[in-house]
Simulated assay, not measured.
Amino acid sequence: MNSQVRPKVAVSSCLMGEPVRFNGGHSRDRFLSGELDPYVDWVRICPEMEIGLGSPRETLRLERSSRGPRLVTRKTRVDLTGRITSLAAERVRVLDVDGYVFKSKSPSCGVHGIPVYAGDTAVDRRGRGVFAARILDAFPLLPVEDEGRLNDALLRETFVERIFAHARLRAFLESDWRARDLVAFHSRHKMQMLAHDPAAYREAGRVVAQAGVRSREELAADYAHAFRTAFARKAGIGRHVNVLHHCLGMMSDSLDQARRADLVEVIASYQAGRVALSVPATLLRHHARGEAAEYVRDQTYFSPYPEELRLRNHVPA
């Protein structure tokens, strides 16, 4: 398989160590700026700096209104909602990325649990940052997280898997592809998509079946939607087990009884939460290489992102 495509990922600038926080500091995230950095092309964004607030600056908060949450400076009571939403609209027109990592707890960039105030009382703690909300409304299938949630091993792996899948799709659709190339691309992603959303995989397959009949533009749009929809659903243990058994079944005739039994046992250990997904996946890929099972070997399921990230090493809860 070709080397991994580098995802383009938007990120709140402070998470990469830029001193753009309200207090003049930063919120450098070790995973983003360290482990993930060699494999990703970052698009750094700080909406508060881009509308001219500077750093340090007065703190902001969300306030309830009849028109929805407003972004307001805490002391001077300046309403910044219009400036932030205008900036978001400009960004939406030009943003071409495979994912976005927002700063948690930010009234402009927070994705989850931002308090909305009425006077001095937080009346809703389920708010979303004004800038982030506009981006998510415009790109509902874009892989999005905040750095706090990326501390969870499963959420981290899911996000990274999605941005690399989106990057491969982007690179493919930007190439001079033909109908047979779309068939091959879809085929290589079969197991990975089945682990996420079998229904979306089948829908993508129906689109692929029309290759050579419909226009490239229509095919690209419909296939991209089905592909991204598939990866928007988290891959569960049960679907991983089904995929692992499916791969084993395709190699079964070339394996002796002892090796088949070993693989079945390892898959059961993963299902029971005794070993990480990396264990059965690595063994299956090893046997696929040894038995020259090219179809299984070339599945993106076995190499969804650079192995150096070691994201499949957590044991499922």
Rank of each mutant, 00 (worst) to 15 (best):
M1A: 15
N2K: 15
R6K: 11
L15A: 07
P19F: 09
R30V: 07
R30D: 14
F31N: 04
S33R: 06
S33K: 06
E35A: 14
D37W: 10
P38E: 13
I51K: 04
I51D: 05
L53C: 06
L62D: 00
R64T: 03
G68E: 10
V72L: 08
T76Q: 10
D79A: 06
G82P: 07
T85Y: 02
L87C: 12
A88L: 06
E90M: 12
V92C: 14
L95S: 10
D96C: 07
Y100N: 03
C109Q: 05
G110Q: 12
A118K: 09
A118I: 00
T121L: 14
A122D: 13
V123S: 13
G129Q: 04
G129H: 04
V130Y: 02
F131C: 09
L136V: 10
D137G: 08
A138H: 12
F139Q: 03
G148R: 08
A153P: 14
R156Y: 02
E157V: 12
F159P: 13
V160H: 08
E161W: 01
R162G: 01
I163V: 14
I163S: 01
A165F: 07
A165R: 07
A167I: 07
E174R: 15
D176F: 04
D176W: 05
D176M: 04
R178W: 05
R180G: 03
D181V: 08
V183E: 14
H186Y: 07
H189P: 04
A195M: 10
A199R: 14
E203K: 15
V207I: 14
V208N: 01
Q210M: 13
R214E: 13
S215R: 12
S215G: 15
E217S: 14
E218P: 03
A220Y: 04
D222I: 00
A224T: 03
A226V: 06
F227M: 05
R228F: 02
A230W: 02
A230I: 09
F231A: 03
R233D: 00
A235G: 14
A235C: 05
R239I: 09
H240I: 07
N242K: 11
N242E: 14
V243N: 01
V243M: 03
H245W: 11
H245S: 02
C247R: 01
L248H: 02
L248S: 05
G249Q: 11
M251T: 05
S252F: 04
D256W: 06
A258H: 06
A258D: 09
V266W: 01
Q271R: 14
A272F: 06
A276D: 10
A276T: 08
A276L: 10
S278W: 00
R285C: 02
R285V: 03
H286F: 10
E291R: 13
A292Y: 12
E294G: 05
R297Q: 09
D298K: 12
Q299S: 13
Y301C: 08
P304D: 00
Y305E: 04
R310I: 10
L311H: 09
H314E: 15
P316G: 09
A317E: 12
